[in-house]
Design a protein around this nucleic acid. Structure first.
Lengths: 364, 364
DNA sequence: AGGCATTGATTAAACGATTAATCAGAACCT
DNA sequence: AGGTTCTGATTAATCGTTTAATCAATGCCT
């Protein structure tokens, strides 16, 4: 049973060159004092032997694993691919790996998932909290991606501003009765988006909020939202807080024979995968996940490697009880990243017919 | 600079009880010979001190990191949440963590992503290959989730059977002219699904394949697929190889004023997140990702921990050059997992009107 | 009673990398 | 020439865990 890794280690390189392990280590890390010529020879043989440093050995000695955790309590969230991709990329640029943890939308398992990560020795973690939950002590530095209005948030998209932009867009098109579609008022993200929308609409614009959660409680999951009725009531625009619900609205309206965007407009949020391929393509707000991930990872890594932006007093400062990097909520300078309006085909000026949509509604 | 982890280690427990580290290790792992009473005391103090074993120390000694890699070359794939969730769950049940790697749909970066995982010391990896790529030597045990018809596949959904079931469903509804919608013939998964569909249709049923890739080459990404024309040509059903394309077809048809399912039917694959909430809800084939993940992880872990199902000769067998666990393509006993038909509202008997769909097409 | 197996613990050696401390030799200065 | 500094390398300790080898003590058998 050969449990040892096959690859060569530092001592093999050292032996093959007749030098000490320490010298090899220094040469490869560029830290100690090694002659340029020897560095070159060591580099060469390391490459020739196919040397891969053992993370285990390094981690044991340095106390750092080089791995970050990514906690997504609601992994079925269709945003996940975007988030995971961006976080993984930023982390790998910073030299870190990403361990995923899922709590299957169960609030109780969130703590368990976090513990699993801690037991695996992550140096820090990025948490996208399930709506309404607060992050308890994790035992390592933590970056939170939620909303700017949530206390403890590290960085996130500026959902409020995103809401404003959508509202401005719909307002400028001339909509005066807009239905806002959300799932649950317990979500900070949704509240911010809706708040932003409301704040940017002129006084004469009427809005109403439809909470999907409430309707599904009555009619079951996947039920109709009764949007045709809303059209009869004079609503000309449907602004959903996510492309998933925008899609739901779009198809429900289409099925009812209501033309989008000729008669009513539909907008979403997040520019999810399908938004650009449905007909009509969805007008939506896109988050700059790459920037968000970059800020989160940078701040997190800074805390891990430098202790973070703690009060840097003048020289002579006492480091008496500098808190160990256990459980610090990381903060970033720039905590809100603007969202970008993507105008596609699902939004346009309000249609003429507001009542009687029985026939001739379609324009091909 | 306190680089040491804060938590207590084995020696702290040992010291606090006046026993040796080895005894503590044995007690906690249940391997050596320790009296039941002492085991209990050690367990208790370990818990009291909040002991968390150091993965680094363990990994260094045992040569195993307890971490698996998950490579998804096309991370933007909307299936990702399902896959990641299932793999993470099975892995964590088996006592492993999951490190993600993304190659951003770039074929060249697939190797790089794999290397990153190997450098991080994963014990094995699960790869969902980008369509058409073969997995080169990875330097550790590898489980591949692709299609049963791909050489080297470890386990996957039975896409062919899935195709057959969809075909049987549409056939039994009475459809006789079906348009098959795929992206690219270079995908094994898509080919299997389409092959399955064709194989189960009666001789009198006509089919035609529409490759989205080809159309988009001409008209640009997100363009219309010209499905209204197809309806005029007499097609009454549209079977897409993924819910993403089914959705694209559905909305395009609806926008054109064609009623689904009254006039034509639309079916998809994979039961993606939106399938149950659009109107009409999509009829689709669901993969049993939990079972697939479980089989893949079980096989992978078996190879890692036991050397896998290699030829177990009688006793006296020489283990002269037993191959180290470097780069073994894992195989599983059960390599194809049946897909399940989910009948919703997007499929029904073919509508009466096959020509002239100018007016009165809608039935609310 | 003496020899032997069993139990319950300890000792000590790894695993692979990092790094502070040390050291030999060369160069430099007065 | 003698002392100091600098360079380029080595020595050795350390991180925390696992595990083979060892050992003392006890119980059992003939």
């Amino acid at each position: 049973m050969a449990t040892t890794r096959p690859g060569p280690n530092l001592s093999r390189i050292a032996a093959s060159l007749g030098v000490s392990v320490a010298t090899v280590s220094n040469a490869l890390s560029g830290k100690g004092r090694v002659s340029a010529e020897l560095v070159e020879r060591i580099r060469a043989t390391a490459a020739a032997l196919g040397y891969v440093p053992s993370q285990a050995g390094r981690a044991l000695r340095t106390g750092r694993s080089g791995v970050l955790g990514l906690v997504l309590p609601d992994i079925s969230n269709p945003l996940f691919p975007q988030i995971a991709q961006a976080i993984e990329y930023s982390a790998s640029v910073a030299g870190y790996g990403v361990l995923i943890a899922d709590s299957r939308a169960d609030v109780g398992m969130q703590t368990e998932a976090i513990n699993r990560l801690v037991e695996r020795g992550v140096d820090g973690m990025v948490i996208v909290p399930r709506r309404g939950t607060r992050i308890s002590d994790a035992g390592c530095p933590v970056a939170v991606i939620d909303t700017p209005s949530t206390p403890g948030n590290t960085v996130s998209a500026d959902h409020w501003q995103g809401g404003r932009e959508i509202a401005l867009h719909l307002g400028s098109l001339g909509h005066e009765k807009i239905l806002l579609i959300g799932v649950s008022p317990s979500s900070n993200v949704q509240n911010d988006r809706i708040g932003g929308i409301k704040s940017a609409l002129g006084a004469k614009v009427k809005t109403e909020i439809l909470w999907i959660e409430k309707i599904e409680e009555r009619d079951g999951p996947g039920c109709l939202l009764g949007l045709a009725d809303k059209v009869r009531q004079g609503f000309t625009a449907f602004a959903a807080v996510s492309d998933l619900h925008a899609l739901r609205a779009l198809t429900e309206l289409q099925k009812a024979g209501i033309n989008v965007p000729d008669t009513v407009s539909v907008t979403g949020f997040d520019d999810l995968i399908w938004s650009s391929v449905v007909t009509p393509a969805l007008t939506t707000m896109r988050m700059d996940m790459a920037a968000i991930a970059d800020i989160a990872i940078t701040a997190l890594v800074d805390v891990i490697e430098n202790g973070g932006p703690i009060e840097r007093g003048g020289p002579g400062e006492t480091f008496a009880d500098e808190p160990p990097p256990g459980s610090r909520l990381v903060t970033a300078e720039k905590s809100r990243v603007p969202m970008q309006l993507i105008v596609r085909q699902s939004s346009g000026p309000p249609g003429p017919a507001k009542t009687n949509l029985s026939d001739g509604e379609l324009s091909t």
